Amino acid sequence: MLKNKSWWSQTIQCHMQNQKSLYIFVSVLFMMGVIFGAIIVNTLDLNQKNGLINYLGYFFRQLKENSIAEPSIAFQHAVGDYLKTVGLIWILGLSVIGIPVILILIFIKGLVIGFTVGFLVNQLSWDGLWFACVSVAPQNLLAVPALIIVSVAGISFSLLLVRNRLIQHRGTIYPQFISFSFLATGMGLLLIIAAGIEAYASPWMMKEMIPQVSWITVPNGS
């Protein structure tokens, strides 16, 4: 077990060292998505904001009444979504035209997080920030690094394909393919843990925060 952990740790460290510039680029792109998502909140018109506030109020009501999806069902959906994303990035990494799509996926991930946190803070001020800390942050502390790692690995492998197949027309890529696949598998396992946090831990923490944001008008559900 310790040897396996050491091997995974060394593999990831070596990968991150060799792809430092790519990590900086992808991380900056993700942060740009976060910033852009937060800016979009300020461009919403009154009707759009009211619609989102009503939905947020409905969600709080469901959460307070324990009427949200069962944790096991939420876990299955979260695992499915995460593994589909990793699988898509893995497939895109095996093609020479997958790089732009991988970058778009990372940008959209940042955009969604930025918009969610930005809207909560915009409407609930400090209460919204604390609520975001328990609803958005816990699972994404694992999910975002895992997605960035597998994205960089996919971009790196795609660039390797370009060099070896389109430019040099020689060289084996099988070892790099195995390494990329193992890395994607490892990040998939990490995302399963993130899905567990999202399904089991986050709802409990969010419920504890509801009294601090209960001044929102909650619809009757009619």
Rank of each mutant, 00 (worst) to 15 (best):
W204E: 10
G221S: 07
Q10W: 03
G171K: 09
F115D: 00
E65N: 14
A78N: 14
V28Q: 03
K3Y: 03
P71N: 08
L22P: 02
N220D: 12
M187A: 02
C133V: 15
G154W: 11
L63N: 12
A184R: 05
P100V: 13
N18F: 03
G33L: 04
L22G: 09
L52A: 07
V162S: 06
W130S: 05
Y23P: 02
L189G: 05
R163I: 11
Y82A: 12
K64C: 06
Y200G: 03
N66V: 10
V34C: 07
V150D: 03
T185Q: 00
A201L: 15
Q62A: 08
L56Y: 13
I35W: 06
I39D: 05
L120D: 06
F157T: 00
Q17I: 01
M187R: 00
Q13R: 13
G221N: 09
I68N: 07
I53T: 13
G196M: 10
L29H: 05
E70I: 05
S67A: 12
L83H: 02
I113H: 01
I39L: 14
M1K: 06
G80L: 13
N54F: 05
N54S: 13
A38T: 03
Q139V: 10
I24N: 06
S67W: 05
I106M: 14
I178A: 03
I53Y: 11
Q13I: 10
T217E: 12
I155A: 02
Y55R: 08
I35T: 11
P203A: 09
K207N: 13
I68A: 03
G110R: 11
N42W: 12
N66H: 13
N4R: 10
G128M: 07
L29I: 09
F177Q: 04
G33C: 06
L29W: 05
C133W: 08
L88R: 00
S125K: 06
G128I: 05
K207L: 04
N50W: 09
I113C: 01
G154P: 03
F131W: 02
C14R: 13
T43F: 15
I12V: 15
I89N: 05
P219S: 07
F25I: 11
Q10A: 15
L29Q: 03
G114A: 08
T85F: 07
Y58E: 04
S27P: 07
W7L: 12
A199I: 11
I24E: 03
R165A: 07
S181Y: 07
S27L: 13
S21I: 15
